[in-house]
Amino acid sequence: MSTLPLDPRHGGGRFPDFDVTTQARHWDETTRAVVEKRLGMQTPVRFFTESEQAAATALFDQLLYQRSEPRVPVTEMVDARLAENLTDGWHYETMPPDEAAWRASLTNLDDDSREAHGCLFAECDWDDQSAILTAIQNRGSDQWHGMVAAQVWSLWTRYACTAFYSHPQAWNEIGFDGPAYPRGYKNIGVNRLESFEVHDARPGDDPVEGKGQ
């Protein structure tokens, strides 16, 4: 199984040859079905309109730094959650329910982009997109198009991270073992690995020291 493209200075390649899917034979049937569905073809987009799909894809690429293939199909995964009403249910009183908040915030993203660069968000170049997002993030608890900027940011990152870090390719990148039933773990404790686990090849790559900043 391929890994996701990520430059070593951004944390790529820390777990050489580690592939959780080689352990799939040790997973229970129900779990295996759920996880393997993420690896196959996704249901075509049905919740997002075409222009929302374009904005969402550009947004997710930015938030998750997906700049080339193969990508985790985040747009399709988020679209499925919204189409199937698999939201968390709650919404801030200052914000509509998730479905409407998604549509509105993607439209607003295009509005910001048109105003600043005269084109849709998806049509902007990478750095301009990053600048638009940085400006929204920096608004914090201030309003952005009638919603609290931080609440919109939280909506975006919550859905993006849930999709991306549910994917086995993302697990390979971070050294996570994935499903563990019925096998469990034999070697728990600091620096204790299972036979199938792979040590971090660059344990000194501490993001604290400014890698990838």
Partner: peptide
């Protein structure tokens, strides 16, 4: 926290994009 909840923890610090991926690749530590 498992990876998704951990990503929420990391992104709450304001990290996204390459910084988020970089922090997440450090999960084992």
């Amino acid at each position: 926290p498992l990876p998704i909840t951990w990503a929420e923890h990391v992104s709450a610090q304001g990290y996204w994009g390459a910084d988020l991926r970089n922090y997440m690749s450090d999960y084992v530590h």
